[in-house]
Amino acid sequence: MTKTKLLLSTLALAITSTVVSLPAQAEANNINPGVTINQLSHRQPIHWVSVEQIAASLKGKPPMNVGFDVDDTVLFSSPAFFHGKQVFSPNSNDYLKNPKFWDEVSNGWDKFSIPKESARALIEMHLKRGDHIYFITGRPKPSSGHEELTEIIQKDFNIPAKQMSPVMFSGPSHGAKVSYIKDNHIKLYYGDSDGDILDARAAGAQAIRVLRPSNSTNRPMPHNGSLGERVLVNSEY
């Protein structure tokens, strides 16, 4: 009888020790710590807007001149840029300083760039309003003076020729887009970079941020809403 009690006591102690040690062991082996409801529901205080809300804010206003950045705003052009890097400088970003790359990317390689659906919705809304659309890119102007980017964008987004001007190449210099926005009386400008927002404001235009795709080759990523601008919801694609 004594032996039976001793055996049962030993077994109970072993089970208790195992149960007590399980949470600590599970915690040590858990590679997914989970999140609290507060973490899930936390949002940054950004002024989000939709295409419908932008349209509503323009209701009753006459047709105007509207501007768009190109790379990461209307086109996901990373495929073209990635290809250029493999061709001109596989181990560095020196290709961005090579005029031959810029000549190629703006003369055909954008056929591999993907039109963003958020840009399509914006452009369709502005076309319905009768607005005239300008595209201002920070790319250097091709050395030959010839470019196919205008034709590609017009085809990708089905823009009538009478409502679109040829793409303007401002170059990457700080503040380079200001004069283009101002001289063409652009009232509303869309872009993914801080420079787009600041240049639009410097030219007296309203600025709306478009989200840069998370897999863009253009790094570092901007802090959307950090300048107090409106940010287009769901515009990363």
Rank of each mutant, 00 (worst) to 15 (best):
Y180Q: 03
H185I: 01
H126Y: 12
G145A: 09
H185K: 07
K155D: 09
K155W: 07
V178T: 04
D199Q: 01
D192H: 05
K187Q: 08
K162F: 13
K155S: 13
D183Q: 01
S143R: 13
D199A: 04
S143L: 12
H146F: 14
P142H: 10
G175D: 11
V167Q: 03
I181R: 03
G195V: 09
H146M: 05
D199S: 06
F135D: 11
F157I: 12
I197W: 06
K155C: 09
V167C: 05
F135M: 09
I181Y: 02
N184V: 10
S143K: 15
T150A: 03
I136F: 14
E148N: 14
D131F: 05
E148C: 04
S179K: 14
Q163R: 11
F169N: 01
A203Q: 02
R201M: 03
R139L: 08
H146Y: 06
A200S: 03
G130K: 08
K177C: 05
D183H: 00
S143Y: 09
I153S: 07
G171V: 06
R129F: 12
P166W: 12
T150H: 02
L198G: 00
A176E: 09
T150R: 07
S173L: 08
S170E: 01
G204V: 10
Y190K: 06
M164W: 13
K141D: 07
V167R: 03
E151D: 15
R201P: 01
N158V: 10
H126A: 10
D199E: 03
G145H: 11
F169C: 05
G195H: 12
E147L: 03
V178C: 01
L149I: 07
A202C: 09
V178K: 05
S165F: 06
A205R: 06
D131C: 08
M168W: 08
A176F: 13
S170K: 00
M168L: 13
D199P: 00
I153D: 07
L198M: 02
T137V: 07
I186H: 02
F169T: 02
Y134A: 14
L127P: 11
M168R: 08
I197P: 00
S170D: 00
K182M: 06
P160G: 09
G145R: 15
T137D: 04
G138H: 08
S179H: 06
H132N: 12
M164C: 07
G204L: 04
T137P: 04
A161H: 14
G130S: 14
P140T: 00
G138Q: 13
S170A: 15
L198N: 02
P142Y: 08
I159L: 11
K128G: 09
Y134T: 15
A205T: 04
I197C: 04
D156S: 09
M168N: 10
F169Y: 12
A200D: 06
A202L: 12
D192S: 01
R129S: 13
E148T: 13
Y190C: 01
G175L: 12
S144A: 03
D156M: 02
F157P: 00
G145Y: 13
Y189K: 02
